[in-house]
Design a binder for these strands. Structure first.
Lengths: 346, 346
DNA sequence: GGTTCTATTTGGAACGTTCTAATTCACGGA
DNA sequence: TCCGTGAATTAGAACGTTCCAAATAGAACC
């Protein structure tokens, strides 16, 4: 049946024999109205199947209850895990996160952002698409809407950031390979126009330097930060002579790709070539061989970002402390045993 | 600087020296207003950094431009792929999909749905959480909001559905194993309160019957539809005597779990035990061994669902044809070579 | 009975759009 | 001069909420 026009606060007011103001108060759980009246109103609400019109409310209220999560690649399970961590926090604060995917396209990102803004979001948590210009966000921020970057940052931007300790992570990963006896170690994936890339490559170089190994710049191989990028990067790496015996990968996706690439050439990851990943996605521990990776506490970062956002919203500010999350190296099987002196120089 | 109150249509009207009606018309790209005036207005819009208030507009307009995608498990890359397919279609129609995750919890799903409805969505594409009661959605539908189920259906519901041909997929998968010489074939994962489960188990049974194999009901092993579920299901399966030599898995996640479980017991998937998955997620072809799986054309299903939704919105109806997507078996390495008579009866 | 409280309830003006029904203006024809 | 026409613009009433200020009803006090 469902009458075409949806029920409004007015309908339920007349049904309950009170004024619209009273209904509004009940909806907001105000202590002002008499419990008895309140329950009568609630009953009426139930009966007509009323649904609250948040758009109308936001017209009067200062801010909405939705924050946007703008994510550059939803098919990377890493971001899904991040989203899940955030949702937990937001849920209990009564605010609803809407997730939008930009598929790594700045254009798409612009559209998505526009929509979210039109919808009147209270804040934005963003992992910016590759190639984003920083202005876009400064603009939003200076309009008074809190923005947090997560996992990626834009150079020169003053927007608060929640990221893992990338340099340290890459340092630990590299040091691990060195301690296993490797000397020719490649770095696979990523592009120099991402800040994260410099952070991770920086940690890698630092570790090499700290152990007196001269970095061979040809072993730093750029590429897409997904499986495919990993497969082609490992091909490039193995073409050098002498070839590297190990690689630190930009992230786990690249690492999985690199491992597949090794197998294609008849090399077994772990025993023939050591691989370390970054992110420690759920899949890492189930892979064959299980992937040694830098764990970034994804869900924790998500929660942290969500909390920070909550505080910004409550305080009505667009400023916040950035957070650099602790990382840890999870050693599994993909680096194999220590290599012998013979192989090292082979 | 950014003055606290955001600019409205009125501000830009006075700035451009026209009425608010004119501005509104310009915003909607009406042909009524003189191009010269239009560009003057657009200039003013640009200058003040005006952002459209869709909430206010929706108060007058019939329906909004957002549809909700409610997904039961965003960490399953399968759903991310599905979402990506939908987004492509919606984007070009000027409508914005907001994604929300229910983490397989009916309670969470209820909350998410409530929010979406309050936000005034034009439609809902839902992969219902495990344990959802059908009433929840009939309710929404009878309020005039188009709902489509995707990937999963609820028994007894009249809501249109976009799903792969599950019985056929399971049939093909099972037949493939039979043709390889297997006779004791398990079915791993899923629960009988999901319609999909019955569809897939049904296809499995049908294939067995078609080849004159008596189904052993103990080999149909229920469990969670994720990696962990797969690991425990394979354990259960191998405890039987005689043990099965092959398994059809509820989905790829279960298949990956099962393969990990096999390795834990020193069995090699492919050569020692044959595995077929369902969904053919991107990872399937990169796994070791590459997973034989039933491809469901994920992106295509997503596009189909989105198109159907678009039509429903435009036609103002809550009815639509259901769509059963064609499937195909992708044969890779996880079923190994044909088994010998000797092993079959071992 | 009149006052002053307190506890509830309510009217009405926003909020930023859209949309219908005017209004205005310039022009050509009678 | 007056009228009709059509193009361009506009006033003003919605839309469904919130929230301030004000109203109402008892109860308590003198």
């Amino acid at each position: 049946m469902a009458s075409r026009g949806k029920a409004t606060i007015l309908d339920i007011a007349s049904k309950a024999g009170v004024s619209k103001s009273t209904v509004s108060l009940v909806l907001q759980g105000s202590a002002l109205i008499r419990p008895e009246t309140a329950s009568r109103v609630r009953k009426a609400i139930e009966e007509v199947g009323y649904v609250y019109n948040r758009g109308a409310a936001n017209l009067r209220k200062a801010h909405s209850n939705v924050v946007g999560m703008v994510i550059n690649d939803l098919t990377n399970p890493f971001f899904a895990e991040l989203a899940v961590g955030m949702e937990r926090v937001f849920q209990s604060a009564g605010i609803v996160p809407f997730i939008a995917n930009t598929a790594e396209s700045p254009v798409r990102q612009g559209e998505v952002l526009k929509s979210l803004l039109e919808q009147g979001v209270a804040g934005l948590i963003v992992s910016p698409a590759h190639g984003t210009s920083p202005d876009a966000f400064e603009h939003i921020r200076s309009a008074g809407i809190p923005v947090i970057f997560t996992m990626r940052r834009l150079s020169g931007s003053r927007i608060p950031v929640v990221v893992p300790d990338n340099p340290r992570g890459a340092f630990l990963a590299t040091r691990h390979l060195i301690s296993k006896g490797h000397r020719r170690i490649a770095f696979l994936g990523g592009f120099p126009d991402m800040v994260v890339y410099h952070e991770r490559v920086g940690g890698y170089r630092e570790a090499l330097a700290a152990h007196g190994i001269v970095a061979d710049e040809t072993l730093v191989i750029q590429g897409d930060t997904n499986r495919k990028g990993g497969m082609s990067a490992i091909d490039t790496a193995l073409a050098f002579s002498p070839a590297p015996t190990a690689a630190v990968c930009f992230n786990d996706a690249v690492a999985f790709g690199a491992m597949t690439g090794l197998r294609k050439r008849g090399l077994e990851p772990g025993s023939d070539f050591a691989i370390v990943g970054f992110d420690d996605v759920a899949e890492a521990q189930h892979y064959m061989p299980a992937l040694t990776s830098v764990a970034v506490d994804t869900a924790g970062l998500g929660e942290r970002a969500a909390h920070t956002m909550l505080n910004m919203i409550r305080a009505g500010t667009t400023d916040a402390e950035s957070h650099i999350g602790a990382i840890s190296l999870i050693v599994r099987d993909s680096c194999g045993p220590d290599i012998t002196e013979a192989r090292r120089t082979a």
